[in-house]
């Protein structure tokens, strides 16, 4: 599998470390009533066949955290965007 790092160009998957689901958003509330949201954030994951956005670090390269979208059925990589840039967009 090849991943097009926005900083380093297309590089082999061995240079990257996968973390997991990039669609979950860390809750901001610290109220006990928000516990369900936190449980979902920490533990609940979809396991889709098809497109999946994951946090991936270019650990053997520029070390940037990326959001890589790939098809879990075909392993085709659709995009790789810096997580920083992703978060900046609302």
């Amino acid at each position: 599998m090849l991943i097009p790092c926005p900083h380093c160009g297309t590089r082999p998957v061995e240079e990257f470390t996968f973390l997991g689901d990039a669609t979950v958003i860390r809750p901001t509330s610290l109220e006990p009533s928000s516990m369900d949201d936190w449980m979902d954030y920490v533990y609940l994951r979809d396991n889709p066949r098809g497109n999946y956005a994951e946090y991936v670090q270019h650990s053997g390269g520029c070390r940037a955290w990326l959001v890589v979208t790939r098809n879990t059925g075909t392993h085709e990589v659709h995009s790789a965007v810096a997580a920083k840039a992703m978060k900046a967009k609302p």
């Binding site: 946090y55 997580a83 978060k87």
Partner: peptide, 13 residues
């Protein structure tokens, strides 16, 4: 190190 990079880049850029 990787955790710090994640927290900054993905959570609080």
């Amino acid at each position: 190190m990787s955790h710090i990079e994640f927290c900054h880049q993905a959570l609080w850029p």
